[in-house]
Amino acid sequence: MHNSTKTVLSALLLAQAAAASFTLTAPAAAHHSYSMFDMNKTVMLEATVTRFKWQNPHAFIQAEVPVNGEAENWSIEMTSPNNLIQEGWKRTSLRTGDKVRIWVHPLRSGAKGGSYVGVRLADGSTLGEVS
């Protein structure tokens, strides 16, 4: 258990070169600027869903990520529910207790949060971009 967790964590900070170049702020597209996230980096979390909030201005995934036997609580911001619907999401796509892999652009502050990129659900199906 601990070993597999460590493997996941060592892979956690693998950087992915993203096409997007750095600009001062995100396009005038969102409810707030995305500059709080490191959009050039993607990390993968082996997580258990503790809450899935399907509500504007952003849907959110709260998830528990085991690290050395301790649980880290991650808060993952998604786009709006209506945009997620366009990508195949439903309010019931995630349920509390689901064990999933989640890819995120992490917060630049180092706090346990990030911007949603993709997910591999418990049944093996995927939504969004997964590595």
Binding site: H31, Q55, N56, P57, H58, F60, E77, S80, P81, N82
Partner: peptide, 13 residues
């Protein structure tokens, strides 16, 4: 499609 409710103060993260 339909517009979805937006009550920011209820989900101001």
């Amino acid at each position: 499609g339909a517009l979805i409710e937006f009550q920011c103060s209820e989900n101001d993260r």
